[in-house]
């Protein structure tokens, strides 16, 4: 019997080592897998490359990971925010490398990795400083930039419900990067509010099929208490 559910956050983090590349779902705090990140911090490893839309908000999630000094490089679209003080300090001190990627290119590059594409041609960023030095091509009269896929060793994502085969459904805008990051990482670890018996999730509405998910861990939902 295949059972991808793990009983502890500590067990969910098994194998993540120094220097790993880790995708982290979430847009701001919505969909941010805070408890998985706390478990990653507790693992006491560093030199991580983080791929996430933002560079942390407030004191939790990616912000806590940066504060703990575990992040060597972050690949994201929108690091600078009113409450990104931990990233700002690390960046200004030269302790963290930033690769800034337009949000849609970030999504497309992650998706390309998950879909096995060698690269994509995207119109986004053409003629801007973010495309400097990159190969371009005119196709049917429109200009595109060649962008490479973004792979990762691990993805940490938050979903609403999951089952022992790794099937997932999400909740509202907490879905954001979860489904595509699950596709792009070698090992995807999902925290869910509830693990349900196999067959309970309607196959017509499963968003992430279990093939993209390796570990599922149940974490009591904190979303009602969370703040922006």
């Amino acid at each position: 019997m295949i059972d991808k559910s793990v009983t502890s956050l500590e067990a969910a983090m098994g194998g993540i080592a120094n220097g790993a590349s880790v995708m982290i779902g979430g847009f701001g705090t919505a969909g941010m897998p805070d408890e998985l990140i706390d478990a990653l911090i507790a693992r006491n490893i560093g030199d991580l490359t983080i791929i996430s839309n933002n560079a942390g908000n407030g004191e939790t999630g990616v912000a806590a990971l940066i504060k703990a000094g575990r992040v060597r490089k972050i690949v994201c679209s929108f690091p600078r925010q009113a409450d990104s003080h931990h990233f700002d300090a690390a960046y200004r001190a030269g302790r963290i490398e930033l690769e800034l990627v337009p949000q849609g290119n970030l999504a497309a590059r992650i998706h390309a990795a998950g879909a096995g594409l060698g690269a994509i041609f995207t119109p986004t960023g053409f003629g801007t400083t973010l495309a400097q030095g990159k190969e371009t091509r005119r196709i049917d009269g429109k200009d595109y930039v060649l962008e490479l896929p973004i792979h990762a060793d691990y993805a940490l994502i938050k979903a609403h419900k999951g089952d022992r085969w790794g099937n997932l459904i999400y909740r509202k805008t907490a879905r954001n990067f979860g489904p595509i990051m699950a596709m792009a990482a070698k090992t995807t670890i999902a925290q869910v509010a509830e693990i349900v018996p196999l067959g309970d999730l309607d196959p017509e509405v499963i968003v992430t099929p279990g093939i993209f998910v390796q570990r599922v861990v149940e974490v009591a939902p904190a979303y009602l208490a969370a703040t922006a």
């Binding site: 679209s77 929108f78 690091p79 600078r80 925010q81 990233f87 700002d88 960046y91 200004r92 930033l98 800034l100 990627v101 337009p102 949000q103 849609g104 290119n105 119109p123 986004t124 960023g125 053409f126 801007t128 973010l130």
Partner: peptide, 16 residues
């Protein structure tokens, strides 16, 4: 100099 860049979805929206 000294400002931290952030682009978000602006480039995708502008051309898309």
């Amino acid at each position: 100099a000294g400002t931290i860049p952030a682009v978000g979805g602006a480039m995708d929206l502008a051309v898309g």
